[in-house]
């Protein structure tokens, strides 16, 4: 297992894309905090502003860091097939389970580290501008930030699974970005039409929408007249997203063991 970890670590660090994807992720999220600081430096900081500043606009539905890290997750296996390196990889590390475990360990550890660094940088920006970060460790915000870390990890896991499942990069990218953006938004939107109200019970099972609720500050309020979606709690929603990630990963893993390399 140590050998496989050493291999995977070298694989990740010898790719230029690793550096620019992490760099872009940190740059954009820091930019969000800086913009908020420039705009709101004369007002006392609110919990909402602090929340958005720390998760780099992920709370607004723009999870920049998660997106860049998910591409690294897709590359972990997708690159191997796209460029045919799976053959030398498996002739130097033939135990397929160990290889996948090592890849998962490396990509998730990297994601966790980068996410914590990102939050630390953004907290630094907040302190420079406002000199304080009220309620950081208290319930709605503290819990939402833990949820944010979990969300990024699960999102990367989905990317990893898709890269292994599709054995390539482009199709995995399409699914991970278009599915939440188009399919889930469409189902949510259509469920508001009375004739399509049979879609209402489906909404609480939309995986990416559920995943995003891990980092919410307060349960969503769709206003009067919206259908009753009977949504899950924060953690149960996160559970749906985790289950979705687990399903994709298991399918990919089983196929990886069965298929020809």
């Amino acid at each position: 297992m140590l050998d496989a970890l050493r291999f995977e670590w070298t694989r990740l660090l010898t790719l230029r894309s690793t550096y620019w994807l992490i760099g872009m992720g940190l740059l954009v999220t820091t930019g969000v905090a800086v913009l908020l600081g420039v705009a709101g430096r004369n007002d006392p900081i609110s919990t909402e502003v602090l929340w958005i500043a720390l998760n780099g606009a992920a709370g607004f539905g723009l999870p920049f860091l998660a997106v860049f890290m998910a591409i690294i997750g897709i590359f972990a296996c997708g690159h191997e097939y796209r460029h045919g390196t799976i053959q030398p990889t498996l002739t130097s590390l033939p135990q397929r389970n160990r290889l996948i475990l090592a890849k998962l360990a490396v990509v998730l550890t990297t994601t966790l580290a980068v996410t914590i660094v990102q939050m630390a940088i953004n907290l630094g920006v907040v302190y420079v501008v406002w000199g304080e970060a009220p309620g950081l460790f208290e319930d709605p915000l503290g819990t939402a930030l833990i949820g944010y870390v979990l969300y990024v990890l699960l999102y990367v896991l989905v990317g990893f699974g898709l890269g292994l499942l599709f054995r390539g990069v482009p199709s995995a990218l399409v699914v991970i970005f278009l599915m939440p953006l188009i399919i889930e938004n469409m189902i949510f939107g259509l469920s508001n039409i009375p004739q399509l109200d049979w879609l209402v019970p489906v909404v609480k099972f939309l995986p990416f929408t559920d995943g995003a609720r891990l980092m919410e500050l307060a349960a969503p309020d769709f206003g009067p007249g919206a259908p009753d979606f009977d949504l899950f709690s924060r953690w149960a929603s996160g559970g749906v997203f985790a289950l979705f990630a687990a399903l994709i990963l298991s399918a990919a893993w089983i196929l990886f063991k069965k298929r020809d390399a």
Binding site: D3, T10, T14, T85, T91, S92
Partner: peptide, 23 residues
């Protein structure tokens, strides 16, 4: 086995270092 099993932008030396690291 295959004709060009290399990542196009990873240097040749790094490609071998990667395989070496696993063994």
């Amino acid at each position: 086995l295959e004709a060009k099993p290399f990542h196009p932008t990873r240097s040749a030396r790094n490609h071998l270092r990667m395989l070496a690291a696993g063994n």
